[in-house]
Nucleic acid binder design. Structure first.
Length: 302
DNA sequence: AACGCGACCAACCGCCTTGTG
DNA sequence: TCACAAGGCGGTTGGTCGCGT
């Protein structure tokens, strides 16, 4: 039993907004600014609940919204961010100027998720539907359309931190109904559980076992990665230990997904440790000394 | 022309998070 | 520390549109 819905009050209008209502809302916000959503409808002379006003403003009436079809470039960004961040639409929306979380979410649910699954797992048959009805605005393409780049490697890395608690969970169980959230981990360091897909190209970084050690580390593959434009190296020193981290640049120069951390053990057995950074990463809160969540370790000996 | 069906998307619902006293 | 209110978020619903039969 949750809180009673805010729109349960008798007499409040629901459903489509009229042009007159839009006008009232816009003129009120332009005169008084955003905020105080609960009292706003009364002050603005609207028979709507505050939440409804907020949603209408954010998703439809704001000046800086970009209307129209989502471009292939935007789809590329959405796909990569969704792979990295999960269904955190509001966070994803901050990387797309003029797009709202609702718009991105709708676009994802309506055809991007299907499109990307075709690209990543073409061998998995999608539910066959009789092809009828309206053609989609943006044509759904198959795996070989030339636009689908290698999916974020993070998705292919094995998730091993099974006892991490989801920040959204209560008593170990998610309260929301029908949730398909793939993010695990604690509130500060949630981790995206990978999508298993036999058709995904091998990165050489994926361990076949769930143990904390062992597994093959393909140095050749790592070197090949470093030749790509979207991978970069970063090194630093903490307590006389050199760290060398490989980053995957998944969006632009300001958004990197850490992929592999290499700890240089120059002073003991000469083995370097390769740590699979199979963890979710929020660039807004990331610092170099962030705690890892149950990472996998790899050694040069394999 | 009428109907059925799928695509689209605005809006709703319910839970979580944050702010405040 | 706790309770409450308000804001925010993500999942879902349902109305509308347009194409195929």
């Amino acid at each position: 039993m949750g809180r009673a819905p805010c729109c349960a009050k008798v007499g409040l209008k629901k459903g489509k907004w009229t042009a007159e209502e839009d006008e009232k809302l816009v003129s009120y916000i332009k005169a008084n600014g955003e905020g105080s959503w609960r009292s706003m409808p009364i002050n603005a002379g609207l028979l709507r609940c505050g939440k409804s006003c907020r949603l209408r403003w954010i998703n439809y009436l704001k000046d800086d919204l970009k209307r129209g079809n989502i471009s292939p470039e935007e789809e590329e960004i959405i796909g990569r961010l969704q792979a990295s961040l999960g269904n955190r639409w509001s966070l994803i929306a901050t990387h797309l100027v003029g797009r709202t979380d609702n718009e991105i979410k709708n676009h994802w649910n309506s055809h991007l998720s299907r499109k990307l699954q075709l690209q990543r797992c073409p061998e998995i048959p999608l539910p066959v539907k009789k092809k009828r009805g309206r053609k989609p605005k943006s044509v759904i393409v198959g795996a070989n359309d030339g636009r689908g780049k290698t999916p974020s490697r993070v998705r292919k890395l094995k998730q091993t931190s099974g006892d991490n608690k989801n920040a959204d969970s209560v008593d170990g169980e998610k309260k929301k109904k029908n949730t398909t959230d793939t993010i695990t981990g604690d509130g500060n360091n949630p981790v995206i559980a990978p999508v298993e897909c036999n058709g995904a190209p091998s990165s050489g970084l994926t361990s076949e076992n769930n143990g904390s050690s062992g597994g093959e580390f393909d140095m050749g593959e790592l070197e090949n990665m470093l030749l790509l434009d979207n991978f970069e190296e970063m090194t630093w020193n903490v307590d006389n230990v050199n760290y060398n981290r490989i980053w995957e640049n998944i969006i632009d120069d300001s958004f990197f997904q850490p992929l592999v951390e290499i700890t240089m053990n120059d002073n003991n057995d000469g083995e370097d440790e390769y740590r699979n950074l199979d963890r979710w990463f929020d660039p807004e809160f990331y610092t170099a000394d962030s705690k890892w969540i149950d990472p996998e370790f790899y050694t040069t000996d394999g």
